[in-house]
C-alpha cells in the first residue's frame, strides 16, 4: 500500500526524513520541501500505476508487484535511467538505484508511524474524508465560529 500525504497537516518537522534514513542504513528516500514561508511538502515515491522508472529499467530490476513499484537489487546495473525517467525526482542512484521500498518487513512504513502530525498515511481516502468531515461541520455550524 503506497503512502499518501495530507498536505494541510505537514508541519515541516522532517521526522519522516530522519526516520527513513534511520531504517535504511543512513540513506533516506523521502524529502521535505519548503515552499516559501508558508508550506512544507514531503516528496517521495508515488508507486505510480504506470511507473516510468519500470519502463526505463531494461533489466527489470524496477518492476510492478501489485500496487508496489518493487526493486530487485540483483538485477540493477546502476545505469541511472530510472533516475532520469522519474518525473518526481524520487529515484536516485549511488552505484545502484535507491527508492522507497515501503519499509518491507515492517508493520507500516516508518514515515507513516513516526509522522507527529498524522500527515502521512497508507489510506488513500483519508485526506478527502477529513476534508469532507470539516466541510460538513462548517455547513452545520454556518461556517467557522
Amino acid at each position: 500500500m503506497p503512502v499518501y500525504i495530507d498536505i494541510s497537516r505537514c508541519i515541516g518537522c522532517r521526522s519522516c526524513e530522519v526516520a527513513c534514513q534511520r531504517v535504511h542504513g543512513g540513506s533516506g528516500h523521502i524529502n521535505v520541501h519548503f515552499v516559501g514561508d508558508s508550506a512544507s511538502i514531503p516528496i517521495f515515491c508515488h508507486h505510480c500505476e504506470e511507473a516510468n522508472c519500470t519502463v526505463a529499467c531494461f533489466t527489470g530490476a524496477l518492476h510492478k508487484e501489485g500496487e508496489r513499484t518493487a526493486f530487485d537489487v540483483d538485477k540493477c546495473t546502476g545505469c541511472g535511467l530510472c533516475k532520469l525517467a522519474c518525473p518526481f525526482g524520487v529515484v536516485w542512484t549511488n552505484k545502484i538505484a535507491h527508492k522507497c521500498d515501503l519499509c518491507e518487513g515492517r508493520d507500516a512504513p516508518a514515515c507513516v508511524t513516526t509522522c507527529p502530525a498524522n500527515a502521512l498515511s497508507t489510506d488513500f481516502e483519508l485526506a478527502s474524508r477529513r476534508a469532507r468531515s470539516r466541510a460538513a461541520r462548517a455547513a452545520a455550524y454556518g461556517g467557522r465560529r
Partner: peptide, 17 residues
C-alpha cells in the same frame, strides 16, 4: 515505535528518531 503510548501513539519527531 510504541503505537499504544498515550501521548505519542507511536510517533516520534526528528530528534526522537
Amino acid at each position: 515505535y510504541m503505537p499504544d503510548h498515550p501521548v505519542s501513539e507511536g510517533a516520534l519527531c526528528s530528534k526522537g528518531n
